[in-house]
């Protein structure tokens, strides 16, 4: 062991007792394996994006970014996120509320359906919408007759994005709301609050951090979605190309510098999202503990967690 027992104890945050520690070589080999993997497959490619983008200097980089098509793609990507994420926020909270707080027939089926977008390949999602809304699809003639464009236009891209990002908010909230139970809501109703008051004053504050976390994740996916959007967008340059599609187009044209420049823009958006996510996690952890946490409260939290785990194992009746 490297650290002598009893010498400069750093509190309980790091394990100090030799009796409960693994040998050093195990520790270091696990650390090396995970860090090596992370560096090689996650960090290195991310750095490569920026290195490639800036290979020819700052001026060509900026030129590639303020190029009209790239700006249009950025604008479209942000527009889609701005529409799809709020829609999912509303749907997600509604679905989670329904599943967590009410018992009804078919609840299990609905819970499974919410996961569908995670299990279906995004390309199939795109094709599905082409089949429904495309010129030869089920509603194609009707849409054409009313001069409505869905496929190869903004509505199609938004619909595909909403579908792909649907589970993020709901999935985040369902376990949270189930763990919290209905008691606080019941208490509020007995005290005379109406449905809206219960939601606004009791339910929402309790799930606030879960909602924000779900929104951040949904936003990241909405901006980065490629497969489904690629099928329904038609890739009209400057019109229906989102940032990921723009990167692909530029790359296929062997315009590597521009491709990486646009890619770096997308990566930056992702990093901002990630930073937001970490901040939310940090804040929510602080909100959970509520400053000074008594031992009793900690025990209650542990008990609640246990209860949640056991109730999660049983299928909801």
């Amino acid at each position: 062991m490297s650290a002598a027992p009893g010498k400069a104890r750093r509190g309980t945050r790091f394990e100090q007792s030799a009796a409960t520690r693994e040998p050093a070589w195990i520790k270091w080999s696990i650390l090396a394996a995970s860090l090596g993997f992370f560096l090689l497959f996650v960090l290195l490619p991310l750095i490569a994006v920026f290195v490639e983008a800036l290979r020819r200097g700052l001026a060509p980089y900026l030129a590639a970014i303020i190029e009209p098509d790239a700006l249009a793609a950025l604008r479209l990507t942000l527009t889609i996120a701005a529409i799809a994420v709020p829609l999912n926020l509303v749907f997600g909270i509604a679905a989670a509320w329904l599943i967590a707080k009410f018992d009804f027939r078919g609840k299990q089926l609905l819970t499974t359906l919410i996961d569908l977008p995670f299990s279906v390949s995004p390309v199939i999602v795109g094709l599905m919408y082409v089949l429904i809304f495309g010129a030869n699809g089920w509603f194609g003639q009707w849409l054409l007759a009313h001069d409505l464009k869905v496929i190869f236009a903004l509505p199609g891209i938004v619909i595909a994005t909403v579908f792909v990002t649907f589970p993020f908010v709901a999935r985040e909230l369902i376990p949270l709301m189930q763990a919290q139970g209905r008691e606080e809501e019941e208490a509020a109703v007995v005290l005379g609050a109406n449905g809206w008051q219960v939601f606004w004053h009791v339910t929402l504050p309790n799930i606030k951090w879960g909602v924000i976390y779900g929104v951040v994740l949904a936003n990241a996916r909405a901006m980065g979605e490629f497969g489904a959007v690629s099928v329904v967008s038609g890739k009209l340059r400057g019109q229906t190309t989102t940032l990921p599609l723009q990167v692909e187009i530029l790359y296929n044209e062997y315009n590597f510098a521009a491709a990486f420049a646009v890619a770096s823009l997308l990566a930056l958006l992702a990093l901002v999202t990630l930073a937001l996510k970490s901040w939310v996690e940090h804040r929510s952890r602080r909100a959970d503990t509520g400053g000074s946490l008594s031992l009793e409260a900690a025990a209650a939290v542990a008990a609640a967690n246990r209860a949640t785990r056991t109730s999660a194992e049983k299928p909801a009746s």
Binding site: A187, A188, V190, L191, G192, A193, V202, N206
Partner: peptide, 25 residues
């Protein structure tokens, strides 16, 4: 008036706000 076994106090509100809840609603 209903009192729950596990209190069902509103976690995000102070004691004052908890007691005032019924009046404010």
């Amino acid at each position: 008036g209903f009192v729950f076994q596990h209190y069902a106090l509103f976690k995000h509100m102070t004691v004052f706000d908890n007691v005032a809840f019924g009046l404010r609603m």
